[in-house]
Design a binder for these strands. Structure first.
Length: 803
DNA sequence: TTAGGGTTAG
């Protein structure tokens, strides 16, 4: 029968502190330190009636201390600890255990130090608790200090201590040290194997985890539920359903199918391996579903794009399960909202999180940053991010990704530079997020530098996502050969790798190679997805392969079961525009099963410009601008058409409209790289230090082409005679791209290609000039504009004069 | 009378 011992005979508390303990030179406990107030009701449940009568003995107090620790009353435990005689190792072990189990890791390590300082000798029981605290702190430094002491006192081969060391090293990310401990153990038990299996799973190396599990079984050790839980987690990482099903069989065979943690791990595994139906089957068999199981099922639906099912599941969780959604439920639902473009739904989840007091919560806040970033509401993403008090790597990654997704590349690069100065070490996700910004804004040499950093950190060989973005980076920086080498050198190519290399050849105008790669991808057993067709149709459009484009477009649904999306219709409209058949282009839009977007109308506008049809251009621009008020390119294109037609009043109207909208024309800027130096030229700005040299080169080129009609002069004669007196503000002679080409010609090795990058589309005049220069200098000139790379050779361009 | 490994989340 339980009895209660009321601890009433203590004086006011002595010096107790949860603060971090640093060993001082003198006795620290002689000075006043922050106090705990005496707990109001200090009660201990005890089974021995005799203890009620007697004065508490040391053993009774130990018993009381254990009761406090077991019931989680750490404050009472600490109070009691300070009051009782705690000179023996056993008492110290109890209090350190209590702190470590309560998640007070810093304090657990502090008490361990104090224990040593006060002369108590840590034993084989002490160290596992302390090592658990070091793991919790993710502190390799503390862990290594403890390991050194273990060696000194000869406890480094104790099986319990070694198991804790393995776990600690793996959790702080020192895989090699964890492996060493495991290898050097004279005796390994089931927990040693479980520690290394879960350690690999923890660091995201599912393959090694599964290899160890198999090895353990082969040497005759029977797995327990912990082995299965880690093994299933490893299958989730690798997306390996086959192994997951094998483990499921073993779970049943070994009688663990009713264990709720194993059941949840099975739901998680099936969900992450793309089998929502099996996840559902396991879920339905659970009699008393807890919040964790419901959350795992919600996550399973979301990762399989069953969004409505995920919301229904949350509804059932409340109505049938009588459970309230928690922060994790919300974290699971936000990606569903982002993928559905359900901004309002996500906002209501945000509001609900605030109302229910779930914030601040670092993971939930990061999920919100990610959600707002994906929904194009960068302002809200920034707002949530700024309010995170202790930002971690994942939150920085989410904000960088949000900037990149919203085209704010400079801001993303600035933030990426910032994190190097903080105690944050970028990981694979950081690089995968930032590389598109490098691809858009930086030079080839900067691209090579970031690639070198990634390689040095050992992130490329095993990370497909990073390898894919590196292919894209090289292609966008103009180095298609290196992009191809990276692709060929990949150990494990996924559908994104193939889509990226197909797009790389597409933007460089090598449509035939793109098509060849598409067929190679299918031969390799990779099923094309929607993005594969965006790459393929873009390549047909850019390279002017009209018949092939139609064939692949029609094959999407017929052969691959993929419904064409708005991006595919956009590619086809570009393709039709290229043929100059504006009637077909209009009909195509009218008959489209989807609502035309600004991108579609922009494509029609470009086609109208090419065919010089101002009326249709006006219609297209009106539609585009009704959907995107700030589409600067749209205003500029229309304005250029008016200027060519001599409609200067309309040019002025456009200018006024742009001012009213608060828009400014993007200043053209071209860069050329020589000996790792980047030379930047800006349209109309002749203040560049290299301008004298550029003028000399331009002069020579003009003389060499003097006998031929100048492209600009040809175009200007198309204008009305009276209009010739009008001042044209943006003369093509002052376009930065020709200056960059001229400078590149004399600053790079003779015979080598000249590579220029430009932030906006190249104009027709400059395109003509570049063609001429390539012919008279017999040099290849590559100009990467905001959409494609023009390869000028012997007076021609790969784009066939349509872009 | 104290030990190690474990479920859902960015």
């Amino acid at each position: 029968m339980a009895a209660t011992l009321l601890l009433h005979n203590f004086n006011s508390p002595r010096i107790v502190s949860l603060n971090h303990f640093e060993p001082p030179k003198t006795n620290p406990f002689a000075v006043t330190r922050p106090r705990f107030s005496k707990p109001n009701q200090l009660q201990i449940t005890h089974s021995k009636a005799s203890n009620i009568l007697a004065e508490p003995t040391h053993f009774t107090l130990i018993d009381a201390l254990c009761s406090f620790i077991d019931s989680g009353s750490i404050e009472n435990a600490l109070y009691l600890f300070e009051e009782m005689n705690h000179s023996d190792t056993f008492t110290w072990n109890i209090i350190i255990k209590g702190l470590a189990h309560k998640g007070l890791f810093k304090e657990a390590v502090s008490y361990f130090r104090r224990m040593e300082f006060e002369g108590a000798r840590p034993d084989k029981f002490t160290y596992p608790f302390v090592l658990k605290a070091c793991s919790g702190l993710l502190s390799l430094k503390e862990g290594e200090k403890v390991h050194a002491k273990l060696i000194k006192v000869g406890l480094d081969l104790d099986v319990y201590v070694c198991n804790s060391l393995i776990s600690m090293y793996m959790k702080v990310g020192c895989v090699e040290l964890g492996e060493n401990v495991f290898k050097e153990m004279p005796v390994r038990d089931l927990v040693s194997w479980n520690s290394i299996i879960s350690g690999y799973q923890f660091i995201g190396d599912g393959l090694s985890s599964l290899v160890c599990l198999r090895e353990m079984v082969l040497i005759g050790i029977r797995p327990d539920k912990f082995s299965f839980i880690s093994g299933l987690g490893a299958c989730s990482i690798e997306g390996c359903q086959r192994n997951g099903k094998e483990i499921h069989c073993q779970v049943i065979k070994n009688g663990f199918e009713m264990d709720f943690m194993v059941e949840t791990s099975l739901i998680d595994m099936y969900g992450k391996c793309g089998n929502a139906v099996y996840a559902e089957r396991v879920f339905d068999m659970i009699v008393n579903k807890n919040t964790v199981a419901w959350n795992a099922m919600v996550a399973g639906y979301v990762s399989n794009a069953c969004f409505s099912e995920s919301f229904s599941c949350v509804k059932k969780m409340q109505e049938v399960g009588k459970l309230r959604p928690d922060g994790i439920t919300m974290i699971n639902l936000l990606p569903a909202c982002a993928q559905m473009g359900a901004l309002l739904m996500g906002k209501s989840i945000h509001a609900s999180a605030i109302r229910k007091g779930f914030l601040p919560h670092i993971v939930l806040e990061t999920a919100l940053v990610d959600f707002y970033g994906r929904c194009g509401t960068l302002k809200l993403a920034k707002h949530v991010f700024m309010r995170i008090s202790e930002k971690n790597l994942a939150s920085w990654n989410a904000m960088i990704a949000a900037y990149v997704q919203n085209g704010q590349y400079s801001e993303a690069l600035d933030m990426f530079q910032d994190i190097w100065y903080k105690s944050v070490k970028p990981d694979a996700i950081t690089f995968a997020s930032i590389l598109p910004a490098y691809a858009e804004l930086t030079s080839l040499s900067e691209g090579r530098q970031i690639h070198a950093v990634i390689t040095k950190l050992g992130l490329t060989s095993s990370n497909t996502i990073i390898s894919n973005t590196i292919i894209y980076l090289y292609a966008k920086c103009g180095d298609l050969q290196t992009a191809r080498r990276c692709f060929d050198g990949m150990f494990c190519k996924d559908v994104v790798s193939w889509n990226t290399i197909i797009m790389a050849y597409a933007i460089h105008g090598f449509g035939r190679i793109s098509i060849q790669l598409f067929h190679e991808m299918i031969e390799h057993g990779i099923k094309p997805n929607k993005s594969s067709f965006v790459s393929l149709l873009s390549s047909c459009s850019i390279s002017g392969m009209v018949d092939e484009g139609w064939e692949y477009f029609n094959s999407m649904k017929r052969d691959y079961g993929i419904d064409p999306g708005i991006e595919h219709f956009g590619c086809m409209l570009d393709l039709i525009g290229r043929t100059g058949n504006l009637d077909l282009a209009k009909r195509f839009i009218e008959e489209m099963p989807l609502v035309p977007t600004a991108r579609i109308w922009g494509s029609l506008l470009a086609a109208s410009r090419k065919a010089n049809d101002i009326e249709l251009a006006e219609v297209a621009a009106k539609h585009a601008l009704s959907l995107e008020h700030d589409n600067t390119g749209c205003y500029i294109l229309l304005s250029n058409m008016y200027a060519e037609a001599g409609r200067w009043e309309d040019v002025e109207k456009i200018k006024t409209l742009m001012i009213q909208e608060g828009l400014a024309k993007t200043m053209g800027c071209s860069t050329v790289e020589t000996d790792y130096k980047i030379h930047r030229f800006v349209d109309q700005d002749r203040s560049n230090a290299q301008m004298n040299m550029v003028n000399d080169v331009m002069g020579i080129i003009s003389k060499m082409t003097a006998d031929k009609e100048d492209a600009y002069a040809h175009r200007i004669t198309k204008l009305k005679r009276t209009d010739l007196t009008r001042k044209r503000p943006n003369l093509p002679e002052n376009h930065s791209v020709r200056w960059a080409i001229s400078f590149g010609l004399i600053s790079t090795e003779l015979g080598s290609p000249v590579l220029v990058r430009k932030n906006i589309r190249i104009c027709e005049d400059c395109h003509n000039v570049a063609k001429k220069i390539s012919k008279i200098t017999k040099r290849e000139i590559i100009v990467g504009d905001s959409k494609v790379f023009h390869h000028f050779q012997d007076g021609n361009c790969f784009c066939g004069d349509y872009w």
